[in-house]
């Protein structure tokens, strides 16, 4: 059974409704480890060795974070800068992460239609996430499509609850190997694999 590592980064977790619910739902699952980065490293002083060991122990990595300014919170960037070292994650000898799977689980205030060529964000989520895609590629990992929660500020508690169940389904589905590799690589959102796609 593949094991999953959630690399969770939220600087104001105590104020977040969505991520609180998402995290709550997947806490305590078998073979799922949650690494709460802002709790672990409030001073941005990342213990690189610990992080590397965690990476080596898991098969599927999920960057879970709010989609701040079309990107990630500062600490996650710091994490990538320090942990994905040359010789470990990339480079000739940097093969330790080879064949691991990785994707983003993000929340954003913008709607699905806003993240289109014609929408006011002008690019799709997938385009914005090119940074992660290429990072995965350089580290010889497989980049999966993102799990996205749109309109996060407008959601009712019931809708949030619904999304957290979807997230649970995605995480356990990956862990239990339910999805076919073809579908995984082809889908634009992880949401589609459990039959809950966003549509225009």
């Amino acid at each position: 059974m593949p094991s999953i590592l959630i690399l969770f980064a939220h600087p104001a977790f105590e104020k977040s409704r969505t991520h609180k619910e998402l995290i709550r739902k997947i806490s305590g699952l078998e073979n799922v480890t949650i690494n709460d980065l802002y709790e672990e490293y409030p001073d941005f002083d990342i213990n690189v060795e610990r992080e590397k060991e965690l990476l080596l122990k898991h098969d599927i990595l999920i960057f879970q974070h709010p989609f701040y300014w079309y990107s990630m919170p500062a600490l996650l960037k710091q994490w990538m800068d320090l942990v994905l070292e040359y010789g470990f994650a990339y480079g000739i000898k940097g093969t330790h992460l080879r064949n691991k799977k990785i994707f983003n689980a993000i929340s954003t205030g913008g709607s699905f239609s806003a993240y289109q060529k014609e929408g006011h964000n002008r690019y799709t989520i997938t385009e914005f996430l090119a940074v992660f895609d290429q990072t995965a590629f350089l580290c010889k990992m497989t980049y999966y499509p993102p799990f996205v929660v749109h309109n996060s500020h407008l959601l009712s508690s019931e809708e949030i609850e619904d999304f957290s169940n979807q997230y649970l389904e995605v995480v356990t589905g990956l862990r239990d190997g339910i999805f076919s590799e073809d579908d995984l690589v082809r889908a634009n959102y992880m949401n589609n694999l459990i039959g809950r796609p966003y549509t225009l």
Partner: peptide, 15 residues
């Protein structure tokens, strides 16, 4: 402090 991360104001604006 940190109202940049405050989803309350964003929420009100979004509604």
């Amino acid at each position: 402090r940190d109202s940049g991360w405050d989803s309350d104001t964003l929420r009100k604006g979004a509604i």
